[in-house]
Structures are given as C-alpha cells and as structure tokens.
Simulated scan of single mutants.
Amino acid sequence: MSTASYDVIVVGAGSMGMSAGYHLASRGARTLLIDAFDPPHNNGSHHGEPRLIRHAYSGGAIYTELALRSHELWNELEDASGEKLLVQSGVINMGSPGVYSLEDKRDRSAAFNVEIEYLDADEIQKRWPGIQLPEHYQGLYEPKAGYLFSERCVAAYRKQALAAGAELLVNTLIRHIEADGEGVAVHTPSGIIRAGKVIVSAGAWFKTLEPFITLPIRPVRKTVGWFESAETLFNESVFPGFTLGTENGGYYGFPSIGGAGVKIGRHDTGVPWLPGEEVKPFGSYPEDEGDIRRALETFMPQAAGKLLRGAVCKYEFTPDEDFIIDVHPEQPNVLLAGGFSGHGFKFSSAVGELLADLALDGSTKRDIGLFSLARFQQAPSR
C-alpha cells in the first residue's frame, strides 16, 4: 500500500472502533479503520450475541448518561440500517444485599428519571416463576432495558461507516505506531499510513502495541453457555435479561431467543490470556460449563438442561473495571479507548460519538474524568 494521509486512523475496528469510524466519517473526516481481523469476528469481545443494555448503573453518573445516549444512538442505527438491533425485553437485576447492593442503581435511576421497580424475592418469583431466590435477595427491574445483537450492531456500523466514506483495512496487524511533528504514522505490513490523529481501540490486543503504549489492561478468557430451558418460562416473550449477584460470583444472562436456550455467563473470574496465545475452546476447563450450570441449577433450575452451545470471548479488565478513554500520556494526537471490562458493549455507540468529539474537536461535553489514565498511581507510558 502506498503512503496515504487521513484525518483520523482508528486502530481496532471492533465495537468501539467501528462506532467511532462511523461518527468520524459522518462528520466529513477522512477516516481509515484498521483491524487485525475482519469485523464482526470471534477474536475479540463482541461475538456470541446478545449483550445487555441497562440504564440503572452504579459507579459514576457518566455510565447512566452514556447508557441513555447509547440507547438513542442504537435506535438511530436501527432506523438507518433497517436491522433489528435492540430488544426492550426488560432486565431484572437480582442479588444478595450483602454482596450486590442495588442502592446506587436506585439512586442513579432517580437522578436520571430511569423507570425502575424495586422488588423483593417473592415478587420476583411471582412475576417470573422460573426464578428461585433466597428470601433475603432483592431485585431492581428496568422495563425499558433489554439486549443488543452485538454482531449485527458491529456489522451495521461497518456498513454505515463505509457508506459515509470511511475506508476499512481488514486482516492487518499493526506493527508499530509512532508520532512525530507531522502527525502519527501507523506501520502496517503493506507500508506506512499517516494521519493527523489516531484512535487506538485495540481491545484485548493492546499489549501488541507496547512499548508505544503500556496500559493496565488484563485480558482474560471468558465463557458463556446456552442451556436447554422450559420455553414456557424462559422464552423471549415472557422472560427478561438478567444480572445476578451471589455469594459465589456475579452472573448475567438472557431469555431463550428463538429456542436457543437461556444464555448465561459469569462476570468475575476468567483465565488470563495474552495476544499470540492459543484461546482454548469451550470445555477445556471444568469451570467453563460447571460455574454457569451451578448458577442455573441454584436459581433457575428449569433452565439448567442440556448444554446446547458454548462460546469463548475475551474481557479486558482494568484494575478498577472502569474504562480508559484518554489522550496518550506523551502523544496528544493519539487517543486511547480500552479496558471495557466485560460491561462496555452497550456503551459503544455513545463511546464512538465521544471519541469522534475528542478527535475532531479536542474536547467533549461529557465529564469523562472517571476514565482518565491519571487515576492510576503511575500513569502508563512508554
């Protein structure tokens, strides 16, 4: 490839990157997206759909703000693409108060006028008879929350980005990034490509870009499974998405969509993984099925049937599980977006918009201080 010049190059065209590419190109920026694979693909964090979208969030207010904006943008993408991307199934957040407090979510909901219902264990079981909870468990139900078809979302943003004028370079592993007085140079196997700004959203692959940037991101191998379920209790017309915080771990899941079985995954734990290492297939470890099956057997026994399908994806944990969205500590023309820690997909439509703001305007109206590199004791750098 001959040397080319762009306003912005996006390195990593998965969930966040593809969204950013669309928002950049739709504003008239000369945009190039580069990915090591051909998105949507199964080498990152967006495959194995669906993904939950919730608005009642604990932590900083920025999460609820972004979740609400993301929902608007997913609706806009649906309209533009003609694809069904979001299902408002409702989401029931359940947990033991000792390990999974719902107070932050309830307070945040009030501040942002998010519609919720606060339910005790008995009320949850009456509404969804497939759920069996200890009597001290509590729940917070969001009727306007639901789930996203993540691979469709990435494919839809890809189509819209290209239609808006973005270019996409697939199956291209970046060798090196360097910033100089003329902008930023991205070294690929086919040559050097230059841009005024670069957004790096490399997911679990950030380590391949060291020493240009070293971030406190820990990639881990995660598994999810789909289990044969009593359809009258768990099909998508009667059962919501869910989160479940227990004394033995945190879980999330979805109704049986089209008879595929209840999908469940575990948020905590996971096997460490590094780029270049083999990603062992589902079933390689006893806990791949064992952890999630035990949760179903305990809390949703009629959804703990035969394993119908298993899948492996990746999380990218930061130490505090908050995101990293910031400028490179030494290179002001390089933006970093990473560490989305297994709960980031729902936000990707709004994160892409935010990254376009930062790249084109140099600022954003949103308070993203929570995502700053400065929160770590020693800011990661070269």
Rank of each mutant, 00 (worst) to 15 (best):
L33I: 08
L355A: 10
G12C: 08
A161T: 09
G28Y: 00
L370H: 07
A36T: 09
Y141R: 05
E167G: 09
R152I: 01
I92G: 09
L77P: 03
Y251I: 01
I192C: 13
I192H: 09
M300R: 07
L66E: 00
E353N: 11
T188S: 04
A304P: 01
P301S: 06
L373F: 01
I34P: 04
A350N: 07
E123K: 15
P275W: 01
P50Y: 02
F227V: 13
P380G: 14
C153E: 08
G165C: 03
T269Y: 12
P134V: 06
A155Q: 15
F323Q: 06
G283C: 06
P286N: 14
A111M: 08
E247D: 15
K365Y: 01
F340A: 07
A374W: 02
G305R: 04
F254W: 02
L307W: 09
L358W: 00
G369A: 14
A80H: 10
R69D: 09
S284P: 05
Q138C: 13
L336H: 04
V220S: 02
L370Q: 09
G183E: 05
D288F: 12
F112C: 02
A379D: 06
M18G: 02
G362A: 04
A121M: 08
R382E: 08
A25E: 01
Q331I: 10
V279S: 15
L370Y: 05
A25C: 03
N43F: 11
V87D: 04
L274V: 00
M16K: 05
I257T: 05
G225R: 10
L354W: 06
P240Q: 09
L233H: 08
F371N: 03
Q377T: 12
I193K: 11
A13V: 04
G241C: 05
A379S: 13
S89W: 06
A304C: 02
E135F: 14
H187D: 08
E151I: 06
T364A: 15
F239D: 06
T243N: 10
I53Y: 05
D79N: 11
E78H: 06
A337L: 14
R194F: 10
G241K: 04
A29L: 04
A80N: 09
R27A: 07
G250A: 13
L336D: 00
